[in-house]
Amino acid sequence: MSAVERLASEPLLRVADLSRWYGSIVGCRDVSFEMHPGEVLGIVGESGSGKTTLLKCLSGHLEPTSGKVEFDTRRHGMSDIYGLSEPDRRRMQREDWGFVHQNPRDGLRMRVSGGANVAEPLMNLGRRHYGEMRSATIAWLERVELDTSRIDDKPRNFSGGMQQRIQVARNLIHGPKLVFMDEPTGGLDVSVQARLLDLMRELVRDLGLAVIIVTHDMAVARLMADRLLVMRRGEVVETGLTDQVLDDPQHAYTQLLVSSVLQI
């Protein structure tokens, strides 16, 4: 689907005037945007800028103080995610979404094998055929370039980069419409990071996924995101096409952020 056709279609995610306060402290404020299928949105800003609060609100983990997050769910169509009942919201999170955490420990079950971690979302969807799930898991391990002979190893026996690959497979195997990524390469060596970014970019394009990726790393943002939200002190100070924002930043804070990137 082309961008113009996409625009004509319904958005996948619609965020309106979203604010989250922690008492008198602002987490994020007056955030509004829309996302369409296949788009990759980067949320950038430094620590404490409200990226994580916004991500939590968007992903159904933290109810906003005011404002709305609407998502085009498979079961209920466009719905206010905090208006859904808890089981419906959890089902939507399970069926329609993925969430790749920065720390694999937050996104994987460390006590079960890598293979079972990848297969679990299928079981959560009600699949009950072991052989089929096993094959699907092997196919996904290949897709994220992991040695399939290690399918039954526990995550702790994998390197950090490999753990993230397991996490990526686990969050894509069930065919989500939207995947949240929270600093997915944050804890990795740069060389490992580059391979993973490359892999994720390819998967995103091949699957036509919509992704919301939170990062403080401008290089990651440039590689992954179609467009950016720049956050500062809980507010979106600039938004636009990724290369526009990074190459011709308009807001003082974005100019500072971009000029602070070390050049090598």
Binding site: A3, L7, D226
Partner: peptide, 10 residues
């Protein structure tokens, strides 16, 4: 919009 610019570039 960013989507349209990307499509034009594509």
């Amino acid at each position: 919009s960013p989507q349209v610019i990307l499509d034009i570039r594509r």
